[in-house]
Design a binder for these strands. Sequence first.
DNA 1: CGCGACAATGTAATTACTTACGTAAATAAA
DNA 2: TTTATTTACGTAAGTAATTACATTGTCGCG
Lengths: 317, 317
Amino acid sequence: MKSLNDIGILGLSNRLKRLSEIIHRQTDEVYKTENINFQARNVPLMQLLNENESMSVTQLAEMLGQTHPAISQMSKKLQQADLLYHQIDGGDERRRMLSITPVGFELMDQLAPVLKDLQIVLGRLLALAGGNIMDNVELLERQLEQKPLVERMSELRRERMINSVEIIHFEKEHSKPFYQLNRAWLEKYFYVEDIDHLVLSEPFERIIEPGGFILMARIMDKIVGTAALIAAKDGQLELSKMAVDPDYQGLGIGEKLVIAAIQQYQAADFKGLFLESNRRLTPAISLYDKVGFKEQKSPYGKSPYSRADIFMVFQEA
Amino acid sequence: MKSLNDIGILGLSNRLKRLSEIIHRQTDEVYKTENINFQARNVPLMQLLNENESMSVTQLAEMLGQTHPAISQMSKKLQQADLLYHQIDGGDERRRMLSITPVGFELMDQLAPVLKDLQIVLGRLLALAGGNIMDNVELLERQLEQKPLVERMSELRRERMINSVEIIHFEKEHSKPFYQLNRAWLEKYFYVEDIDHLVLSEPFERIIEPGGFILMARIMDKIVGTAALIAAKDGQLELSKMAVDPDYQGLGIGEKLVIAAIQQYQAADFKGLFLESNRRLTPAISLYDKVGFKEQKSPYGKSPYSRADIFMVFQEA
DNA sequence: CGCGACAATGTAATTACTTACGTAAATAAA
DNA sequence: TTTATTTACGTAAGTAATTACATTGTCGCG
C-alpha cells in the first residue's frame, strides 16, 4: 500500500475511515474469541449508560458525536436484544430515557475485564505511535468545527493576495485604471466635480509634470488601487486620489498605498504633507490617523473640492 | 461532546470515522465553492492515475488500501461522468486498465491549485495538532495488520499470567494436585512405575520428612506446577517431580520452579544438587542446562527409575 | 494439452451510517 | 390563550463502503 505521505494529506480522510474499520473489525474479533456476542461500535453507548443510569437519545447523540438517528437505530437494536429498555420521561413526554436491562448489565460485567485489557493493549499501541493520536483527533475535530476548511481556504487566499500586493510608480498604461478606480470611488461616495475630471483624465500632465507622484497598487498584473501626491504651494505635498477596487478592499491595500506615499514624500525634498478628506469616511480617517496624519485647521481656507471637510497634516513620528 | 479521553480508547474508532466524515464533508464544500463538481473521496484515485497514466482496478485498490469492489464501483461512476475510461490490457485480458479522459485531465487541472491550497491549509492544521497524525495513523495501521488485537490480547493475558505465577512451599492441601500433575506427566511421556506411585501418594512422608522440599507453582489459587528436592545419600539433593499443567505450559513456569529449587538448595545445607532425566525431553534438558545443570556420569550407577538415561549435576556459576 | 488452482474483475446483498422529512410535545411570543 | 418556533424523536431513503459470490482469464504441472 502506498504511504500516506505519498498520497498526500488528501488521502488522510480515506485512511482515517479505514483505520476506524480495522479497529472495529479487530475488536469485534476479540469479543468473539471471548464468546461475547457484542459489537464494538455499541460499546461507547453502553459505557455511557453504565455510568449514567439513564439518558435520552439526543443526549447520547451529542456526547458520542453522532446523529440522533444513529443512536435511535442503535438503541432499537439493543432493545430488541434485551440489552436496553426505555421509559418516557415524566417531565418531558418527548424524551425516551434509555437504560440498561439486567441482561445488559450482565453483559457489561462480562465485558468489563475484556474492555480493560483492550484499553491496555490499545494504550500501548498508541504510546508506541507517539502517544497523542487521541489529542490530535480531538484537536482536529474542534478546529474544523470552529473554522471550517472553506473559511481556512479563503483566509489562505487572502493572505496570499496581501503578500502579492505591489506598489509601483505610475506608467502611461495605468491611465485608464487610474481614471476608472477614482471615478468609481467618487461616484460611490460623492459625485464627480469638474476639477476631478480634469485631473483624472490627464494624470501625467496634471500631477507628475508639476512635480508630484502617482502610486499604483498591483496584484498579479491587475491594478487594484491608486494614490497621488500632488505638489501644492510652499513646497507642500497633498495626498489625494486614494482609491481601492471594492473587490480588493479589506486586504490592507489602502494602508500599503499610504505608507508608500509617506516614504515617497520623505525621500523627496518637500516641506510638508497634508490631505483633505471627509469625516463621513471613518475607515479612511482612522487609517490616516494610524499612520501619522493629525487633524488641523486648514491654512488654505476653503478647499477647491466641495466634499472636503477635514484637513490633516502628516507629523513625523 | 464528551472528550475522547473520557470515553476511552474504545471510542477512538467511532471518532476516527467521524473525523474522516468531517474532512470529507468540508473538502467537498471547498470544491463546491470553487464550482468544481467533484467529490473528495475520489481525489486520491484520480491523483494516482494522474501520476501513473493507467492502472488496473486491483493495483489501485492495493495502493489506496481499499477493497477492489470499492474501486470498481467508484471507477464505474467516474466513467459515467466521462472522467475515466478503460481498456482491456493486451497481455492479460482480465485486467481493465483505467485512465483519465481529456475531460478528466481538464478537471484535474482545475483542481490542482485548490488541492495545493488544501494541502497547505490541512498541513498547517496538522502541524498545530502536533504534526504526526499521519505517521500515527500509518503506524497504527501497520501494527494492527502485523499483529491483530486478538493476538495482542492473548499476549497481554500471557504476560499477566507469567507475572502472577507464585512459587510456594508444599502444604497438606496440595497433596492432590501434586499427585495429579505428576501422574499426568508420567502418563503422557512414560508410564507410572511402582516407586512413582509410592512417592506421589505420600509426598510429605516420602519427601519432606526425610529432609527434602516440595515447591508448588500457583496462578490465582490454582496449582499449575510442582518440583521436588529429595534428600539423597552423602548430603546430596535430587531435583525431581518436575511437572507443569499442559494448559499453562510455555509461560516459563518450569524455569521459575527450577530456579526456586536451586535457591532452596543454596539456602539449605547440602553438598550437591543433581537430577535424572531422559534425553527425549529436549526442552527440559535444555532448560536444566540453561540454569546450570551439566551432564555427568552417574556416580550411583543405574537409577531406580527405568526412564532415566541422563544424569546432570548443578554447577555453581 | 487438459485441468486444477489462483487472479482480476463485476454484481448482489448487507451494513452502518448519513440527510431529509414528519410528528408531537414543549417553550416563547403575541 | 392562541400561535409560532424550537426540540426530541422516529422513519424513510440514500450512500459509500463492506463481505460473499459468480465469471472469466492465466498459469503451472503432470
